[in-house]
Design a binder for these strands. Structure first.
Lengths: 377, 377
DNA sequence: GGTCAATATTTCATATCATGAACTATATTG
DNA sequence: CAATATAGTTCATGATATGAAATATTGACC
């Protein structure tokens, strides 16, 4: 069994990349003796490995790294249809994947997922698969087991975590899709280790999550990051009703669904790629719709930046939108509404929608437990 | 010297109020033996005291409490002119206070403050004064010593903490005014121990700070909570220029200064109390100005709630505004733009502006160190 | 090539700290 | 008064981190 000390080492190596025993001791404020002994255990258990020595003056230091093959994880995304199930290693690399229809019926859903999991666990790795994570578009209880509400699947108070855990015999964690995404980014992604950043994704809906002080910002009722229903259109003459009951929410103008609807209302094609092509050809209505959507998104992003002050905002969206007037309006509107920062670089990183992002984030939920331990250092 | 264990006990008692040794052991997950021994030390050092036994069945339990007189703190507010200096005990009760002119000149400012501190430290308490905290309207560096920028005082990169510390011989912490306010509320106030809440104050400027996951949300560059420059007026025909260089910021419509300016532009008195009186008498222009200001404040508050999801939002403002159309518009606009929560109670707590709030918050910065220890448990 | 200085890592006796079990203390209840 | 229940203490024990000294492994310099 691993102790708190072991987990400290593991999480530091995972966050900060390979480091020698001496560097670890310095960073963690522990004695070299303690680190040495803890590392010995982790090497014996083949969780860490030694890398090629680094030569300086004096005895070379031996960087220690987390072994990718030390543990494997299953990640499930119900964010969209089809559902995606992946098998990742401890570095978040996907080694195998499956797509299957997303079933709303709990029993059908669980059986098809379990079948996929059994398939992905085949072979010698089986014993080292350490947990399952699931991302879904909805609210999840604090126990990270129960889905409190999921409009897309029609679920209410569904103990999907408990059921999966019982059927697979593996510990299981459930998360909201945006939260899973940012937790994956924090553990595996380019922004690994950054203590303050945000992720926004724009698809049929709009999702947002924030890491602050190195931890996920959940809020009092788990509703933090609900950018999607930010009151953006305040001119009530133009505010559209939203499914949440209010009017003028961000998602009524800036989501793919909203853009498609607006286009159809104007007699244009509802398909995003086609609409973007029209806009690129200077079609005035298409330009207007996409500009309004992008600027609204930018305004909401400015609110986010002013309130939360992240170091980066990762924005995942369709390349057609990113490269056209939507992306341009988003950037311009954001930057014109935030206080000038000393670093003049843009803090917005566009990123393509990659199909496995959510499933990877889901797998990271289980990996997190392996790396940070039961107390979540 | 106190160990981590001692600070665990101290912070638990401070957060959760008096508890017996057994209750502490349960809450902190420590053995009764450990708690017993740690408490013994703290009693001997007169940091804790035993309260009257509570009788149940079996041996009565002895609640332990933090002794208010165990330590004293100096709190300085430069939030407004005059500056305020208070002496508080470990419970945040003000025992003595002084007001003095707020000097922009560093040397004059420091000398007058030191004089006040010397005066407040007179008498037998002197030895138990453990630290100094200061709140000022500006940006503070991460070391909590240097004021990076303060428009009201014209300061830039002023090591006010270092100077005060050297002159008084006491450890000193500097904070932004809103941050000091919320940290005081977290340590001493009614919301003590709540892990997710926000504080907004409305005076000549607008300040905001948030506690999330039990910690202050500072953001990447210390700029979190900058609600004051949230882009609220998006209709550029009506957006007023703001001192930050943008247009339509919240503070150009909702701050006392902005309200006064708007009133004067309309040929009305700039004084808030008088304006409120006119509005109460149904003066249409006064009503319009105050409604617009309050609704703007409410819109920004809705953004805050949607993004951060606090359990409470404490709003400190002039009673004249709270009880009139401003407060009403603020509440209505906020509630009409947030997702319905299961608990239908309002999450907004109005509170009067009390003159010593900021100085008390400042004192809490030093008290925090005494209670949580150097590692800030 | 040999020696020295520099740095990394390990060893080990020791100090610290929390624990569990047994014990003591002090109440209520009948 | 005995039985019962809960609070708090004592103490031997075990786990864990520590500091200092020893060992290991290199580059630099003569």
């Amino acid at each position: 069994m691993l102790s708190t000390g072991h987990y400290l080492i593991l999480s530091s190596l995972s966050r900060n990349g390979p480091e020698s025993r001496s560097e670890l001791a310095l960073r963690l404020g522990m004695s070299k003796a303690a680190v040495s002994s803890l590392v010995r255990d982790l090497l014996k258990q083949e969780i860490l490995c030694e890398q090629a020595p680094v030569h300086g003056s004096g005895r070379p230091s031996v960087p220690l790294a987390v072994r990718a093959e030390a543990a494997w994880f299953i990640g499930i995304s119900l964010q969209d249809d089809p559902a995606i199930v992946v098998l990742t290693d401890l570095h978040g690399t996907v080694h195998d994947r499956m797509e299957l229809p997303r079933h709303a019926d709990l029993e059908t859903c669980v059986s098809s997922l379990c079948e996929a999991i059994t398939y992905l666990r085949r072979g010698p790795r089986s014993a080292k698969v350490s947990g399952v994570g699931m991302a879904l578009p909805g609210f999840v209880a604090n126990d990270r087991q129960t889905c409190l509400a999921c409009a897309a699947l029609g679920w209410r108070d569904v103990d999907i975590g408990g059921v999966l855990s019982k059927r697979t015999g593996l510990p299981t964690w459930i998360e909201n899709d945006a939260n899973a995404l940012i937790l994956g980014e924090q553990l595996f992604g380019a922004l690994r280790g950054s203590p303050d950043f945000s992720v926004i994704f724009i698809s049929n809906g709009i999702g947002c999550a924030n890491i602050v002080n190195g931890r996920l910002l959940r809020g009092y009722a788990g509703g933090a990051g609900e950018m999607s229903h930010a009151p953006i259109v305040t001119d009530m003459a133009h505010a559209l009703p939203c499914r949440c009951g209010n009017r003028g929410c961000l998602e009524t103008v800036a989501s793919l669904l909203a853009i498609g609807n607006a286009a159809r209302r104007a007699g244009l094609p509802g398909d995003i790629a086609e609409l973007a092509r029209l806009a690129a050809g200077a079609h005035p209505e298409a330009l207007s719709i996409l500009h309004h959507a992008g600027a609204s998104m930018g305004l909401a992003t400015a609110h986010l930046i002013q309130l939360i002050d992240p170091s980066h905002v990762v924005v995942m969206l369709d390349p057609n939108l990113r490269d056209g007037i939507y992306g341009h309006a988003l950037l311009r509107e954001t930057e014109s509404h935030i206080l000038r920062r000393p670093a003049s670089r843009s803090m917005i990183d566009f990123r393509d929608f990659e199909p496995d992002s959510f499933a990877c984030g889901a797998a990271s939920l289980a990996a997190r437990y392996f790396i940070f331990g039961p107390d979540g250092v």
